[in-house]
Design a protein around this nucleic acid. Structure first.
Length: 226
DNA sequence: GACCAGGCACATC
DNA sequence: GATGTGCATGGT
């Protein structure tokens, strides 16, 4: 018997197809994007990443030797540019200090240990850490976000008060441990978040639109959900 | 002009 | 533990 979460995954996958995430070329670029996208539209992140690429600063080494002023100026379109510049410099500094700036050493480390180290950095919270682990380093870690919370809470599949870890654990418990599934599921949920849940709430185009809450009772919030 | 976007840290009660 | 606020740009 298939869990709700697995049904959601299959349904999204069937209607939306492969998502080809993360939209970034190198592990370092993925990490930069993971920080820059914090509470920000991806379009704005793209501008900042393009700026960094044009300035040849999309490598760990060049990024670390650039000046703060230069980085802030290039990162500006992504918003919160002073904070994000400091956060990225902190992340880069960490990787240089603890892993000699070598992605391969990050990749071969114990990922649960690495997760703790990332969370200890200023400005790296659970979603950013998990995005780095999954999308930059291919670790079997499921990323959850506000869209995930919104969809699952409004359908009554989890409690509104569930925190990041509770939501993540619930989903993982209902899925095989599989990096490819984690990769696609998060991407698919962001996709529906962008195209349905906000712009056209409760539309019949949404892949999840007629999936009923666990209780069978549709509350006002769930009614607004796709 | 208001509201929002793939968070996070910090203050206050 | 819950709730509120600052951070900042660009699109709708």
């Amino acid at each position: 018997m298939s869990s709700i979460t697995h049904q959601v995954f299959k349904r999204l996958q069937e209607s939306l197809g492969p998502q080809h995430w993360w939209p970034g070329e190198t592990p370092f670029e993925v990490m930069v994007g993971a920080v820059l996208v914090q509470n920000t539209a991806w379009k704005n992140v793209e501008r900042a990443i393009d700026n960094l690429r044009d300035a040849k600063l999309l490598t760990l080494q060049s990024f670390s030797s650039a000046t703060i002023d230069e980085l802030e100026d290039l990162i500006r379109p992504a918003g919160y540019f002073r904070q994000k510049t400091r956060r990225l410099r902190g992340l880069v500094e960490f990787m240089l200090q603890e892993y000699q700036g070598e992605i391969e050493k990050l990749r071969t480390a114990d990922f649960l240990q690495l997760r703790k180290q990332l969370l200890a950095l200023h400005g790296i919270g659970p979603e950013t850490a998990d995005s780095i682990l999954l999308y930059a380093l291919d670790k079997p870690v499921l990323v959850v976000d506000t869209y995930t919370h919104r969809v699952f809470a409004r359908h009554g599949w989890i409690d509104y008060s569930a925190d990041y870890h509770q939501l993540q654990q619930h989903l993982v418990d209902e899925l095989p441990i599989d990096t490819a599934i984690y990769n696609e599921l998060h991407a698919l949920l962001v996709n529906v978040g962008h195209h349905h849940c906000r712009k056209t709430p409760r539309c019949d185009q949404c892949p999840l639109h007629n999936m009923l809450p666990a209780s069978g009772i549709v509350d006002n919030d769930a009614r607004r959900e796709c």
